[in-house]
Simulated assay, not measured.
Amino acid sequence: MKKFINSPETVVPDYLAGLVAANPDIIALDPSPRVLRRTDIGARRKVGLIAGGGSGCEPLHTGFVGPGMLDAACPGEIFTSPVPDQIIAATRATESGAGTVHIVKNFTGEVMNFGIAQEILAFEDIRPVTVLINDDCSIPDDDESAGRRGLGATVLVEKIAGAAAERGDDLDAVVSIARRVNARARTFSVGLTSCIPPARGKPIYQMADDEMDIGIGISGSPGRKRVPLRQAAEIAGVLLQEVLSDLKPAKGARILTLLSGLGGTPESELYLLYGEVHACLMRAGYDPARALVGNYVTSLEQMGAALTLLELDDEMTELWDAPVHTADLRWGR
């Protein structure tokens, strides 16, 4: 294992210290319990947006705290859910009287710990509303599993709902647009390698050089099937087929495409793959109206890509285009 770390035990606090040092005008860190928050918390009455998850998936959550997106994030240890104390502290810090939204990816630990935090907060008459993200179409939507995982749609919900909260929408409106985005988004992922958690010191699993893993999650989760490695155009076809067959957008629909690397895929390869996706969408009669390409939902240094499609409406498009100013997503200011 070769990584830029001091020790496996301090990876997360060391990362957060550097993140805050590079963006002191946007974010501040409350170290105990560990909460990353906007520096302008309490400046005005607005709906608060909080999210959290295991570290190692950056810039997910921590890179998206700031005007136009999240008010606070609760980073757990590497690939480990945040604890209830973090969620409680973040909610207290961001509660301005307008209500709070918890954006929760559908992973067992996150659902459980956010639920525990909400039960405790209820004694203080603070009752956040949960928006559950479950856009992973590689998992059947049935009663035989914990349900579909929350993947790339998390970024889209955080941006679009964050813009709604920033413009002053009330709690019901923010929750409504967040749930609408989640309902109209789907994600499917492919992996080319595993990843190496610092405390483990070796890959979670092994893959042959001529294989790819389809239907993977984040945090080093393996996929549903190993298949021979294919060319980029074929991989784009696999990703699109899986997403479009599940999402079923209307013909001619405007589509927001998020093509996220998993941490180790070069930007050149991601844009090459996006070009194939874009061309396929055009040929299929869709309007690829917006795109975001890069490493946004990752698994440390894993090589691979995740395709998220959102069927846009006018309000979603307006809110997506609205100004945002975070460490890892900025435009319009």
Rank of each mutant, 00 (worst) to 15 (best):
I5V: 09
T10V: 08
Y15V: 00
A17P: 00
G18C: 04
V20I: 05
A22R: 14
A22M: 12
L29I: 04
D30E: 13
P33H: 01
P33Y: 02
V35R: 07
R37Y: 13
R37E: 11
R38L: 01
R38M: 04
T39R: 13
A43Y: 00
A43H: 00
R44Y: 04
R45H: 10
V47L: 02
L49E: 01
L49P: 00
G54H: 06
G56I: 00
P59Y: 08
P59H: 10
H61G: 02
T62K: 05
T62A: 14
M69L: 12
D71E: 08
G76W: 07
E77P: 01
E77D: 15
I78A: 08
D85R: 14
A90H: 07
T91I: 11
R92H: 15
A93W: 03
A98G: 00
G99R: 07
G99T: 08
T100D: 11
K105I: 10
T108M: 07
T108W: 09
V111N: 04
V111G: 03
M112P: 00
I116C: 09
A117L: 09
A117S: 10
Q118W: 00
Q118H: 03
E124H: 06
E124V: 09
E124P: 03
P128W: 05
I133C: 04
N134V: 02
N134R: 14
D135Q: 02
C137Y: 07
C137T: 11
S138R: 08
S138L: 04
S145H: 15
R148M: 09
R149Q: 12
A153W: 11
V155C: 11
V157W: 03
K159W: 05
A163K: 01
R167F: 01
D170V: 00
D170Y: 02
D170G: 06
L171Q: 08
D172T: 12
A173K: 13
V174I: 08
V175I: 11
R179P: 00
R179C: 12
R179D: 11
V181L: 08
A183Q: 13
R186Q: 08
V190K: 01
G191F: 03
L192R: 01
P197E: 02
P198S: 02
K202R: 15
P203W: 07
Q206T: 14
M207C: 04
A208P: 02
D209G: 13
D209A: 14
I214C: 01
I218Q: 04
I218K: 05
I218N: 09
S219N: 15
S219H: 15
S221A: 14
S221I: 12
K225I: 06
K225Q: 14
L229I: 12
R230Q: 14
Q231R: 15
E234R: 10
I235W: 06
I235V: 15
G237M: 06
L240S: 06
E242P: 03
V243C: 10
L244Y: 07
S245Y: 09
L247V: 07
K251E: 13
R254C: 10
L258D: 05
S260R: 04
G263L: 09
T265I: 03
S268H: 10
E269L: 13
L273I: 02
Y274N: 12
Y274A: 03
V277N: 03
H278A: 03
L281W: 03
A284D: 13
D287H: 10
A289V: 05
R290D: 06
R290Q: 12
R290L: 14
L292E: 06
V293N: 01
S299G: 02
G304N: 09
A306N: 11
L309I: 08
E315N: 09
E318D: 12
E318M: 06
A327K: 09
L329Y: 10
R333C: 10
